[in-house]
């Protein structure tokens, strides 16, 4: 027995080491850079200047805090709406064979589609020169495509939110369908025979049953949309700018001194996501303990 264990540990150690080195090594290197340690340009001293600059300096603070607000707004709204949309879609079509097939097909196609493609699609459909604007103008619902509201590259991130909803609702949908499938209809039938009407069955049976999976999926989606770069880069505006885009621009900056700020910002983004995840676990843990 003991020999087996040693063998297993020995055999998984090399790949494990590589993973740890690559992954945590990268993070460690980033962390060190964010603290101003950049031997390449002759900087060896450790300080928090980059963090201070991002959070409080006249140059970056306003950009950072508006960016953070936009980030939170976009991630919360898109995650919430994608979850709600997927929930209603899943509930509406789960009992119809046709609806199930069609929705499954659309969403399954959607899932592997790169975010970049979705972003381009959003521009194609929702921009002022897009399909929708031209169609509405053609139908005389608006007088010219220019009257179409600014939904893409707008300061409230509507285009970004639309792209995330479109993409992330597929993820929610597939999770929800499998949860609903495994739950079956017995709980609802039971509740119905106990006198629960349609709304009460949704409120007191379906919602609490799917909530745990919906919540976990939301955390994943939220964390992803909070840190993702390509959709806001394509569909966002210069100001306010979402944090991942801001971080990336620091890296593109030919001035190597901006590297530290870029790294500091990336680490701040990672920290915020981590704190949110910890809060989530803390909340669910206390809920379980209360149970």
């Amino acid at each position: 027995m003991g020999g087996d264990k040693t063998k297993i540990i020995l055999s998984i150690t090399p790949p494990l080491l590589i993973i740890i080195l690559l992954f945590y090594g990268g993070i460690f290197y980033g962390l060190v850079q964010s603290l101003g340690y950049q031997p390449a340009i002759g900087k060896y001293e450790i300080n928090f200047d980059a963090y201070y600059n991002i959070l409080f300096s006249e140059r970056y603070a306003k950009l950072f805090w508006t960016g953070l607000a936009l980030n939170l707004w976009v991630s919360f709204v898109s995650t919430f709406l994608a979850a709600v949309l997927a929930l209603f879609a899943a509930l509406a079509i789960r009992k119809t064979f046709f609806g199930k097939t069609v929705c499954n097909f659309i969403y399954s196609l959607n899932l592997p589609m790169p975010h970049l493609v979705v972003a381009v699609g959003i521009i194609f459909v929702f921009s002022q020169s897009g399909l929708l604007a031209r169609m509405l103008a053609q139908l005389n619902i608006i007088s010219s495509p220019g009257d179409f509201p600014v939904l893409v590259k707008d300061k409230y991130g509507v285009g970004i939110i639309l792209a995330y909803i479109w993409k992330e609702s597929a993820f929610f949908f597939i999770i929800l369908m499998s949860v609903l499938q495994s739950l079956g209809e017995n709980f609802e039938e039971l509740a119905q025979s106990l006198g629960a009407n349609r709304w009460q069955r949704f409120r007191y049976v379906i919602l609490p049953l799917v909530m745990p999976s919906l919540f976990s999926a939301s955390i994943i989606v939220f964390a992803f949309s909070f840190g993702a770069y390509e959709v806001p880069a394509l569909l966002g505006v210069i100001y306010p700018q979402m944090l991942p885009v801001m971080a990336f621009e620091f890296f593109l900056n030919p001035d190597l001194n901006a590297r530290s700020e870029g790294m500091a910002l990336s680490i701040i983004i990672a920290l915020i996501v981590m704190i949110l995840v910890i809060i989530y676990f803390w909340l669910t843990q206390t809920r379980i303990r209360k149970d």
Partner: peptide, 15 residues
Amino acid sequence: EKRNVVMVFQNYLLF
């Protein structure tokens, strides 16, 4: 829901 005919399922199904 208005029949007041209650069914107890085989696997109890407590919420």
